[in-house]
Amino acid sequence: MKKVSFLIFFSIIIIIGSLLFFRSKGSFSSIDSGITRITAPIGVIFSSSASGLSSFFGNLGNIGNIQRENKSLREKINRLEAEKAKMSQLVKENEALRKDLNFKNDSGYETVMARVSFFDPTNVRASIVVNKGVKDGLYSGMVATSEGILVGKVTDVYDRTAKIILITDPFSSIPSITQTFGIAGLTQGQVGTGLIMSQIPQEVILKKGENVVTSGLGGDYPKGLILGRIENITKKNNSMFQSASLRPLVDFNSLEWIQLIKEK
C-alpha cells in the first residue's frame, strides 16, 4: 500500500514538473488556447448575467437615490458639456502647436473592445480572461482601460481569448505621478482590490482626493491614464518614503466591457 502511495506521489510530482517545463517552453499554449476558447463564451454569459442580476437588485433598493442622482448627473452633464467645448478648442490649439514643433502625437491610439469572460478564481490574484485574442489583433503588452481608466495589461494571448493582469494584482507595479502636482511614485496592487502609491519622498506634501495617473516612464503604459484617487496618506518618521492608498475609480469586481489600446 505504502509503495503504491509513494508511486502516486512521485507521479504527481513528475506530472506537475513536466507541465511546468513544457509550459515554459511554450508547448502548452495550444492547450490553454483550446480550453479558454471552449469555456470563454459560457463565461461571458455567466459574468454578464451575474452583473445584470447584481445591477437589478442594486437598482431595486435604490430607486429614490437614483432619482436624486439622476438630477445631479444632469446638472453635471451640462457643466461637463461646457467644459468639453472649451477643451476641444484647447485640443485644436495644442495640435496646431505640436505640428509646429514637430512633436509626435502620442495620444493617437486604436482600440479594441472586449468582453470579460472570467475573473480570477482565487480572489487573491487579480486577472481576467477576455473574449478577444490574436485573431482580433490583440498582442501581449497591450494596455486595457475601462471608462478611460487604466485597468491592466495583456499578458497571455491565445487565438480567441486573452488574459489580462489587472493593476490591483499584487504583482503589478506602475510608475505614476499625481495629476495636479506631478509628484512621482510607484503604484502597486494590493491583495484585495486595493492600490498603494509608494516610493514618494517624505518632504513632498500629498493631497487627499487628488488623482494619480501613469507617468509613462519605462514605456509599458501610455502617459496620463488615471489609476485612482488618493484616499489615505501614511507617513512614518523613520522612513525615507511615504505612501498613499488609492481608491480605484472603476469597480474591478463588476467589469464587463474593456477597451484595449493598440499602438499605432
Partner: peptide, 9 residues
Amino acid sequence: QTSFLKIFN
C-alpha cells in the same frame, strides 16, 4: 467561482 461570486461577494 469566476463570475457570480466575484459580483455577489
